[in-house]
Design a protein around this nucleic acid. Structure first.
Length: 590
RNA sequence: GCAUCUAUAGCUCAGUGGAUAGAGCGGCGGUUUCCGGAACCGAAGGUCGAAGGUUCGAAUCCUUUUAGAUGCGCCA
């Protein structure tokens, strides 16, 4: 079914033609001046320029035609050429009834049904998730759900950071701390290797968590240590069997822990592949790059030139092989593209990554296109997100000044939320559960309501507030709607009525609801969950206004009451769907 | 040095060529015999970093400039 604005556009178009003008100019949008009208048409000004005619005359001509239409009321013309109008109540009620019976709530799906690989999450193995991983997870998950709702086939890949020097560092440090582990015995036989799947790893996630930061620090100061890590990295990449077992165990321990953390955020992946899974594709890929003359030697390293003559900024060549022959970040990213092409043949690959990596991805995308790893029609999309900052405007740190782990952040916010829960009817257990759900909503909503590319300031007090444009406020509105509906049990209704003595707030809520499709489609096409948040807030606000002016339960007129119930049921459905797209859970009570 | 991004109300942010630049918070004033007042309503508060330009019309496009953040071939 069509969106309401599209229905209106058809009307404007036919009126434009009736008035003797070209319909290509026709346009309509919800009003920028709600005090004057509900919808506006700005096309007369555009036409005036081309036709060299007074815009007021054109607007008048079109307005005269619009006045004949039963769907529109209060059609007026305003200087310098705006056409303003309201929408007829009966028409609006009919539209809502249609929307209510549409399973997609008037959203028109992307009929190309693209296959999309989404790369988000990006955690490193053996390292606790920290604040930097929050946005990738939240934004990526929202974009995935929105794309799926729009009819896309989306494959979400967590793309673990499990390759390169970091692995060598972990191995080196583990060997220093626990030299007696089986992995480091000189003659590890194949039998042990076969047992890798069945044997328990000989270390815990907590141990791993301590190891990496220490190793990273040591390697910077101690040249010998650094060399050792390089050697371990090389051995691992060459397929040393003992290290291969160790590697498997590191992955197993890490992934189990990561899944737990992501589950708390309602974030899930279809694939738990990592950089290392692209390894089998590397040699062949590089060989082809050499053979076809795409890559060249430079200071003993292998590079691909990706600069364009008309580049404003200098794009350095993409290095795909170090002078010592080992591969690096760009190599695995390119090989991963080969892998994804083979496995899914996607029409789009989307990366949700820290915006500071933009140059790297520009290089990778260009190299992929140049070396024909993908077809020209495959869209490579980089969605760079900004940094989460503390109140000082600098990247958020933990209280002691170290890296803020994700768990610490979630725990702190959940604790803040628990303190604010006032509902005394709830048991302690129920309170705790609700606080967790609301806290996650608070964090996600705050993050998603900002533009992805911008930095934002993390203010736990503000985010967990029930007032203003916050997750808790949205949830509160929804829980209240449900509370009313629960009290009207057995009175389900799908009759939308908007009679003459309608309340202005009632119509406002109806108009807000009709914008759902627009909000979802915009969030999808612009990769902007923040547009969906803005919409949710608008609906919640409209509901609060309605709630204040219109008493549903004590309404005596049965017909009226049914109209209210239908409206609230649809409001509930719209809000629930929108929150589901953002991966925000709803508490039973709060 | 070169490049990219950001700059909008006291604070946090919307607003990618249209009317009087909008919200929330904070501060000020109001609204409760009634569905959860954790709400609603109202007024105050801005030379859209600065200066030019394009346009009937600019926070939005172009040029210059100031400040901050970020990035710039063998880390991931």
């Amino acid at each position: 079914m069509r969106k309401l604005v599209d229905e209106l556009l058809l009307i404007i178009q036919s009126a434009t033609v009736e008035a003797g003008y070209d319909k290509k100019f026709a346009s309509v949008k919800s009003s920028d001046r709600p005090d004057l009208c509900e919808y506006q048409c700005n096309s007369a000004m555009k036409m005036a320029k081309e036709l060299k005619k007074n815009p007021l005359d054109i607007a008048g001509d079109i307005a005269n035609e619009l006045k004949k239409r039963r769907e529109l009321i209060n059609v007026t013309v305003a200087s310098p050429g705006f056409i303003n109008f309201d929408i007829d109540s009966e028409f609006l009620a009919d539209y809502l009834e249609k929307m209510n019976s549409d399973k997609n709530l008037a959203v028109s799906l992307d009929n190309r049904k693209p296959t999309i690989v989404m790369d988000y999450g990006g955690p490193n193995v053996a390292k606790a998730l920290h604040i930097g991983h929050l946005r990738s997870a939240i934004i990526g998950e929202a974009l995935k759900r929105i794309a799926r709702f729009m009819g896309c086939r989306v494959i979400a890949d967590v793309h673990l950071g499990d390759y390169g020097l970091q692995m060598g560092l972990i191995i080196t440090e583990l060997k220093r701390v626990k030299p007696d582990l089986e992995y480091f015995k000189p003659k590890l036989n194949n039998k042990y290797f076969e047992l890798a799947e069945t044997l328990e790893p000989q270390f815990t996630i907590e141990e791993l968590g301590e190891i990496y930061p220490r190793a990273a620090a040591k390697s910077k100061e101690d040249k010998e240590y650094y060399e050792e890590a390089l050697e371990a990295t090389r051995l691992l990449q060459e397929g040393n069997s003992a290290y291969a077992v160790l590697f498997k165990h590191i992955i197993r321990v890490s992934v189990a822990d990561l899944k737990k953390s992501y589950r708390r955020l309602n974030v899930s992946f279809d694939l738990w592949l990592g950089e290392s899974d692209a390894k089998p594709y590397i040699n062949d890929m590089i060989e082809r790059m050499r053979r076809n003359g795409y890559a060249r030697e430079d200071n003993e390293a292998l590079v691909i030139d990706v600069a364009h003559p008309d580049d404003k900024k200098e794009i350095p060549p993409c290095i795909i092989q170090k002078s010592d022959g080992s591969s690096l970040y760009a190599t695995t990213d390119l090989a991963t593209i080969v892998q994804r092409k083979k496995d899914f043949n996607p029409s789009k690959i989307i990366y949700v990554v820290d915006k500071r990596q933009e140059l790297h991805f520009t290089q990778v995308f260009r190299a992929a296109a140049k070396c024909k790893l993908i077809e020209d029609s495959t869209e490579m999309k980089f969605i760079g997100f900004g940094t989460i900052c503390g109140s000082d405007g600098k990247p958020l740190k933990s209280r002691d000044g170290g890296v803020m782990t994700l768990k610490a952040l979630l725990d702190e916010t959940a604790a803040t939320m628990a303190e604010k829960l006032e509902n005394s009817e709830m048991s302690e257990e129920e309170k705790k559960e609700a606080a967790e759900i609301i806290a996650m909503a608070a964090i996600k909503y705050a993050d998603l309501s900002n533009q992805p590319s911008k930095d934002y300031i993390y203010d736990s007090n503000k985010f967990t507030s029930y007032e203003g444009n916050t997750g808790p406020y949205i949830l509160y509105s929804l829980v209240r709607i449900r509370s009313i509906l629960a009290k009207c049990e057995g009175m389900d209704s799908s009759i939308f009525i908007l009679n003459k003595e309608q309340q202005p707030k009632e119509k406002k809520l109806m108009l807000s609801i009709t914008e759902f499709a627009n909000a979802v489609e915009t969030a999808y096409s612009e990769f902007s969950p923040n547009k969906l948040c803005a919409y949710i807030y608008d609906v919640a606000n409209s509901f609060s206004g309605f709630y204040n002016d219109v008493k549903v339960i004590c309404e005596d007129d049965t017909l009226k009451k049914q109209g209210y119930i239908a409206l609230l049921q649809l409001t509930e459905r719209v809000l629930k769907k929108a929150l589901e797209l953002l991966a925000v859970d709803i508490p039973k009570r709060m």
